[in-house]
Design a protein around this nucleic acid. Structure first.
Length: 443
DNA sequence: TTTCATT
């Protein structure tokens, strides 16, 4: 049994091929383990590279934390292991700050000194690229929200650091949700598609996102062993599967030029995709020259001395997958059309309204969006009977707002739910029900 | 100039 004051620890920077049984020996040396759980993706079961660990005794947790946290690096990882109380133990992530516009040469210590006057700092990390160069920003975690707020009040915009292009930014760090949106944006950018297909990433359900990540990881893990054509087919399937799994797009997808991908692939169950790739059961783990996974015997203490880097590890699988795709599609423009055109252009729609509750108003559209873009942006949510961007009569320029009408209120609600607040560039879309014609505009 | 992840 565990002590009542036991601490649940979060363990990060774990190689994804290590399971509970592999981790146990690493942590058992600090005391009896009450519970050790590798965190897996709730939909895909994919190992997320971290775990929760509770010792029977509080003291064991403290010992493990001081012996391991930031002290050792497990093989294949490029950052040291994290062993610290889980967020659930401290409640609230409202005490973490994002600090932007730092000089490139400032270290964790420099940043810490700047923030120390405002309270007790739990964590202070300058973000760095794989080569160790600063990204010019940092995260600083205080013990309380009030301390963090005090730092914002005093430091935000207070000065311009040497080498920075504008004044210091100090704000609360993005929430999990905001980060998700940001990632989608990055994916969109990497796909080289600002709109409209890329925007649909914003409409993806968590489930679809999870599938995407899994497929991307598989593609990344195996692209080295697959022919370019197979890799591209995998990326295609990833898109198709994502779209179909989302249940939003019913359009049949037919390849428009010769590849080995049969039309039937669009109907392939998602679970069958790894098999279709010929990688079913193949774990995305760097292997030894023998073809066997690295045996535990290589690091009998369970902990490998710093810096133990695997040449295969430090690339983000998503980035790698999409970079690969971009490269491929750049070389074969004809093939590109296979990936994108899930949404054939319907004939131009008349501007007409749906019933009450079926019409939505969209504001903060990018200047370059036309009827076609907003149609494609909202078609995943239902049957669109009208999509109209308003343009200035004199200049023919978009007024950056428009209306979309569905044939039923549920689609309109789904669209609002998914797209309101969706970030495009610096702006977020405002998506709400269109006001009835007779309502006055209060602004 | 937004991270490596928090059941």
């Amino acid at each position: 049994m565990k002590e009542p004051d036991a601490i649940k620890l979060f363990v990060g920077q774990i190689p994804r091929h290590l399971e509970e049984k592999d981790l146990k020996p690493i942590f058992e040396q600090f005391g009896r383990i009450f519970e050790l759980t590798v965190i897996k993706d709730k939909y895909t079961g994919l190992h997320k590279g971290c775990a929760f660990l509770t010792y029977c005794a509080r003291d064991s947790a403290l010992k493990a934390q001081s012996a391991l946290h930031e002290q050792k690096t497990l093989p294949g990882m490029n950052r040291p292991i994290q062993v610290k109380p889980a967020d659930s133990e401290s409640r609230g992530e409202d005490r973490k700050l994002f600090v932007g516009m730092l000089g490139k040469q400032q270290t964790d210590e420099d940043v810490r000194k700047m923030f120390e006057p405002f309270g007790t700092i739990d964590e202070c990390t300058v973000l760095r690229g794989p080569d160790g160069t600063s990204k010019g920003c940092a995260f600083v975690k205080f013990q309380t929200h009030a301390e963090a707020q005090a730092a914002i009040n005093t430091l935000h915009s207070s000065r311009t650091l040497p080498g920075a292009s504008s004044s210091l930014v100090v704000k609360f760090a993005d929430t999990e949700k905001e980060r998700g949106l940001r990632r989608m944006q990055q994916v969109a950018t990497q796909l080289g598609m600002f709109s409209p297909i890329a925007l649909q990433f914003g409409a993806y359900s968590a489930y679809t996102q999870a599938l995407m990540q899994q497929q991307a990881a598989l593609v990344a893990a195996h692209s080295a062993y697959l022919s370019p054509m197979a890799t591209m087919a995998a990326v295609q399937m990833q898109h198709m599967a994502a779209i179909n799994a989302n249940g939003l797009i019913a359009t049949p997808i037919t390849p428009s030029s010769g590849t080995s991908t049969p039309p039937a692939i669009a109907a392939t169950p998602v679970s069958a995709i790894p098999a279709a790739l010929g990688v079913n059961g193949y774990s995305p783990v760097p292997t030894q020259p023998t073809g066997q996974p690295a045996p535990d015997a290589l690091y009998p203490n369970g902990v490998h001395p710093y810096p133990a880097q695997s040449p295969a590890a430090p690339v983000d699988p998503l980035q790698q997958a999409y970079a690969g795709m971009q490269h491929y599609t750049a070389a074969y423009p004809a093939a590109y059309s296979l990936v994108a055109p899930a949404f054939p252009q319907p004939p131009a729609l008349q501007q007409r309204e749906g019933p009450d509750g079926c019409n939505i108003f969209i504001y903060h559209l990018p200047q370059e969006f036309t009827d076609s873009e907003i149609l494609q942006m909202f078609v995943p949510f239902g049957h669109v009977i009208s999509a109209k961007v308003f343009v200035d009569r004199a200049t023919n320029q978009s007024k950056c707002f428009g209306f979309v009408s569905f044939d039923n209120p549920a689609s309109a609600q789904a669209a609002i739910q998914a797209m309101n607040g969706f970030q495009i560039g610096m702006k977020r879309l405002k998506v709400q029900l269109k006001r009835p014609k007779d309502a006055n505009r209060p602004y």
